[in-house]
Design a protein around this nucleic acid. Structure first.
Length: 495
RNA sequence: GUCCCCAUCGUCUAGUCCGGCCUAGGACACCGCUCUUUCAAGGCGGCGACACGGGUUCGAAUCCCGUUGGGGACGCCA
């Protein structure tokens, strides 16, 4: 593989204490491409805006990426050593010198210039333009200052502006196709603030250039910026990387996915009991297909099948329903042990004492819920009765199962059946119930539902026989007794 | 306001590059039916789209132009 073929891709989030769902998609596509091609995936923190970047926020980025199962080869976040890779530092806040050096070089080469215009002047000009319905562009006032004029300013503060060259700039976007723009559509934009901080445009280009990024894969909100960036790449003498601008993730109404919306933060989905592999699967599907009709993928399959060519070019609305379905599918593919391990923290968080149960028992419990739940969080409602006594019975179910004449007798019959059951397994219990159905003329449901209510206090849950087996004979009988008392106390409606 | 990008069922999409195989396929959702101890899952079926208008062509979802709609950029934010 020649040097030109080496794939080096990156994501460059700004640590704001928040990892946006759109960032996650971008990260995923970059990562997939790197893993597919044997390339390098780089994490770089765009923390130049000191106001919004706090050190602990970097941890949020790491956490989100870890949760998604996206690992990076170069960048910060490698424990005590902090950074890994030969192109660091990987935080823009530590690259100020590099930006200054490159900006100075541009000035020397006549490709950038000092601008002494004040914030107020620029503000006024912008308002003026808005009033006259003109595009708000910098006038170029300081573009041709002579060295004498510059010297005359003394140590007045100045910004550095890029001198946009004449001509046309083309970008050959791998997703959007060729985009051709007249350079005159751009004004001379600022690349360094008067306080010395590099502006985003300079920083990304210098970083991407020096870090030898081969493909810039990012959201298509940067498509217009890409033209600016190409001009900068050329001015700085760096090879121009390939570009791929991905369509954005919109909310369910087709609007920009606002940070305020639940779900905008990747970790919201963890909170809601979704599996990272399901979210990953969903996010990839939002803008990519393998071409056949498959849509359920493991991480490995995704890497295997992924290609930049099959990326779509239109924005996609986020559809929670589909995510839920995918989540259910992935949930069912876990082993009982995996499911148990993922669900245990949730049970503990819900205040259930799981420590008394063996790992095997808990895996068994997970297994009988596996076909029933869609999200991890649902496990709590499906299993809480295993860990604590029943305090209340679901009201609606009580009306339906226990208010009819003969309900008490029926529960006494159930008690006798259970008491007489020898081998306490789901299978024998099922046999006992089926036999009773045949003998009594009742339907299975007429026996099962009241029993479920007595054992769990609810009308929904895992299969009755499976749950009864796990609950144990003793507990089951005690709960039936309690139900019989409950029914008696409330009084049956006489026939 | 200027420039840029996008446009197939409610949603995600296949098909578009290389026009005919498309009376437009799949999935989610929804609605029936079925299975069934609930829930869920499963099986079967149904509803449902080429944004609009012009061209080019024997023939257009596919190519061209325009309109409309959506998104983005135009910051001494990233």
């Amino acid at each position: 593989m020649s040097n030109a073929d080496v794939v080096r891709v990156r994501i460059a989030p700004s640590p704001t204490g928040f990892f946006h769902i759109g960032n996650a998609k971008t990260a995923l596509i970059n990562w997939l491409y790197a893993r597919k091609t044997g390339g390098t995936f780089i994490l770089r923190l765009e923390d130049t805006d000191v106001e919004r970047s706090k050190e602990e926020y970097a941890g949020v980025v790491f956490e989100a990426l870890h949760w998604l199962g996206i690992d990076w080869d170069e960048g910060p976040g490698f424990g005590a050593r902090a950074e890994r890779g030969e192109y660091g530092p990987y935080r823009q806040s530590r690259r100020a010198e590099t930006y200054h050096r490159e900006a100075a070089r541009l000035i020397e080469e006549g490709k950038a210039y000092k601008c002494f215009c004040t914030k107020e002047e620029l503000e006024a000009a912008r308002e003026q333009a808005a009033r006259e319905k003109r595009p708000p562009r910098y006038s170029g006032k300081c573009r041709n200052l002579t060295s004498a004029e510059i010297a005359a300013r003394g140590d007045a503060p100045y910004a550095i502006r890029f001198k946009v060259p004449e001509g046309v700039t083309e970008i050959h976007d791998l997703v959007q196709g060729t985009v051709r723009t007249e350079n005159r559509e751009f004004d001379d934009f600022v690349i360094v603030k008067p306080n010395g901080d590099a502006i985003f445009h300079l920083a990304v280009v210098v970083d991407d250039g020096l870090m030898k990024i081969s493909h810039v894969i990012r959201g298509d909100d940067h498509l217009t910026n890409a033209t600016r960036h190409v001009m900068l790449f050329k001015a700085l003498g760096y090879p121009v990387p390939k570009f791929a601008h991905l369509p954005m993730v919109l909310d369910e109404h087709g609007k920009k996915y606002s940070k305020r919306l639940h779900g905008a933060n990747v970790l919201d989905w963890r909170e809601d009991g979704f599996l990272p592999e399901a979210l990953v699967n969903y996010l990839v599907l939002l803008g990519w297909t393998p071409g056949d009709n498959r849509e359920l993928f493991t991480r490995e399959e995704l890497i295997e099948l992924f290609s930049l060519e099959r990326l779509g070019q239109s924005a996609g609305k986020f559809d929670v329903k589909k995510l839920q379905w995918l989540n259910g599918q992935h949930l069912r593919r876990l082993s009982p042990e995996e499911l148990r391990d993922r669900v245990l923290p949730l049970l503990e968080k819900a205040g259930l004492n799981v420590s008394a149960k063996s790992p095997e028992w808990l895996a068994h419990m997970a297994a009988i819920c596996q076909e029933k739940i869609r999200t991890l969080n649902e496990i709590v409602d499906y299993t809480d009765f295993f860990f604590r006594d029943i305090e209340t019975y679901e009201e609606k179910a009580v009306r339906k199962q226990w208010k009819s004449p003969g309900a008490g007798d029926r529960m006494r019959r159930v008690r006798a059946l259970l008491d007489g059951t020898g081998a306490w397994t789901a299978e024998t219990l099922r046999g006992v119930y089926e036999k009773e159905v045949a003998a009594s003329g009742l339907s299975l449901g007429e026996l099962v539902h009241p029993t479920r209510l007595a054992l769990t206090g609810k009308s929904v849950g895992p299969g009755l026989f499976e749950l009864a087996e796990l609950l144990g004979k003793e507990t089951c009988l005690a709960r039936i007794d309690r139900a019989i008392q409950y029914i008696a106390k409330k009084g049956e409606v006489p026939a």
